[in-house]
Amino acid sequence: MTIRRRLIPYWLLAPGLIWLVLFFVIPMYYMGELSLKTGSLETGYQLTWAFENYTDSISEYSTQFIRAFWYAGVATFFCLLIGYPLAYAIAFKAGRWKNLMLFAVVAPFFTTYLIRTIAWKTILDDSSPVVSFLKTIHLVPQDGRVLATSAAVIAGLTYNFLPFMVLPLFTALERLDQRLLEAGKDLYASATQTFWRITLPLTMPGIIAGILLTFIPAAGDYVNATFLGGTNQAMIGNVIQSKYLVVNDYPDAAALSFTLMAIILVALLFYIKFAGSEALMGEEEETR
């Protein structure tokens, strides 16, 4: 009886654990093993502890790695820049339009990712009003273009992942105690100071969640580069996809995926450890 009762928490954990083992540990193991094999489809793959799969593919595709992080980073930055005011407006200024606006934020999800991205080809094509406008204000040179450039890929990533930024930000802002903002004002902080000293630090968990949810999938994305990018704008996701689907070099594809994952994980831990937790604590400069 007591033993059974003591086991209950573990039983409750079981579905989660099984999920984790089934979809995380086992595939992880297989992929780790595969990434160290050599061979081909005809000869089969043998485990030869081919660590050169890692060294070679990293040095070979460092450009695409760096580019992926660069594009994802810039897109995440823009998502934050656009998403924060948007989430702020929805949370505080939208009034009875709040639900409608939230719906509008997630509405793009009702069409497929691919279709959404392809729609941006029309928005950014060489003769589109957007591009003509950018040309008149000299943001784009007269003989220049937007589609099939890095800018288009970043714009696509920003557009596609914006909801992942807005939703956690909205939740954080909505949870923000309005009375704290009044308390700030009461204590002589202007609107700007209130924002930087109170709103921003208190919504930091939302910002961090938003950055993670945006940056991680953006760094591994290949769809935007495929449809909106031109030549020499492939991201590491495109390389992995081509290695896997076209060249059928499964070990290299696995090694690259693993490397991407490891880099993101390490960056993440650093980020949370340093930037993240400190920002979370909202450390003011010491009062002493």
């Binding site: 595939p27 992929m31 994952m261």
Partner: peptide
């Protein structure tokens, strides 16, 4: 998030 990302990659790439 990582777990999800990883498993998606893995499911895509097969084992």
């Amino acid at each position: 998030v990582l777990a999800l990302a990883v498993s998606m990659v893995l499911v895509a790439c097969g084992g």
